[in-house]
Design a protein around this nucleic acid. Sequence first.
RNA 1: GGGAAGGUAGCGAAGUGGUUAAACGCGGCAGACUGUAAAUCUGCUCCUUCGGGUUCAUUGGUUCGAAUCCAAUCCUUCCCA
Length: 372
Amino acid sequence: MKIKYELLKTDNNCKARHGIIYTNHGSFHTPMFMPVGTLANVKTLTPEMLKDISSAIILSNTYHLWLRPGEDIVNKAGGLHKFMNYDGPILTDSGGFQVFSLAKNKKKDITEEGVKFKSHIDGTNLLLTPEKSIEIQNKLDSDIAMSFDECPPASASYDYLKNSLERTLRWAKRGKDAFNNDNQSLFGIVQGGPYEDLRKYSATETVKLDFDGYSIGGVANDGESKEDMYKAVDYSIPYLPTDKPRYLMGVGEPIDIIEGVIRGIDMFDCVLPTRIARHGVAFTKYGKLHLRNAKFKEDFTPLQEECDCYTCNHYTKAYIRHLLVCNESLAGTLLSIHNIRFLIKLTEDLREAIDNNKVLEFKEEFIKNYRN
RNA sequence: GGGAAGGUAGCGAAGUGGUUAAACGCGGCAGACUGUAAAUCUGCUCCUUCGGGUUCAUUGGUUCGAAUCCAAUCCUUCCCA
């Protein structure tokens, strides 16, 4: 079956909404943060660890699984869930984001047919098309597949964005026509940079194609300002149906999740919590902590006093710093547990705030505490 | 007792007459990271009142100029007795 979105409550003072998404692998409340598991694993964590921190749905990646191990192997294994021993919902990204960063000559390599690029593993010349991306995702058998879109850089001009978004629309249609998996849902992606007319057009036309959910793409790219990111959301949301989930791709920072929720976003994904974890950084309500810093040498307190995660319940900053300094991979695991829990708890708190019409107050309170 | 090699910044290690305060690695310090080509990448790491000052075991010498050449001394490692 396709996923289903049920709206439970909207905040009276903004567009924030609390809902539930039902999938073949269980349901979860939204807004929700989704950890990223590009290569069919959330780096350094087991599925059990994810369940333990109430992680409800994870991402994986079409491009990476296409190259290794190959979608047919995943399919033979019984699909992505069985292959990676994860029985919760999985969303696969289309590979567009990867492929565009690998395409050397944007003008020449991005054609109507698809995107030409070289494999980052062995340099093989490859072509990824909307049909191919969907075919791979159908075989991976994730719960939610993403349309193959172009994710232009923040620096792209209005004219470039306009042409690019038109092509993304054509690709969305082609992908939808090629789609062939009754147990999987497909999301369309709205592009258009920070421009109101482009976002409106992209959203309206994408919705006409009738997807199971809609995402807002092209944000949080190379140095895009937060204002532009919020504009992209503001200009897209009004044209999206209220009975389908909305997903802000690639976000991210705690404050951006809050701003996204206020604007009506239901789903977020980001590599940040797991990446900065491996790099020794922890989210806290007071800001980010660089655990390698010498000042934590003798700090025998948890990352954050009130945190309910496994890491905070059992380990100190001094110990995690020690692991980091010694390059022990457990540091990445412990910090990933904490950071993902931090963002998921953030969405839990936001849902409670929505139920009480207090999302805007929640944001003010959060900003007051959060530094850097 | 005889012979050989060697002593370079916190450590390891290049350099063997001048553009060398001295490569590089480690360690240390700080930073970046937003649909993961990222357990990665970047910067700093003798002292400084930012003008400069003091360095390559120690002392003395050669030279316009030495970590680099010479002498003595003190250490270290290895080989033979």
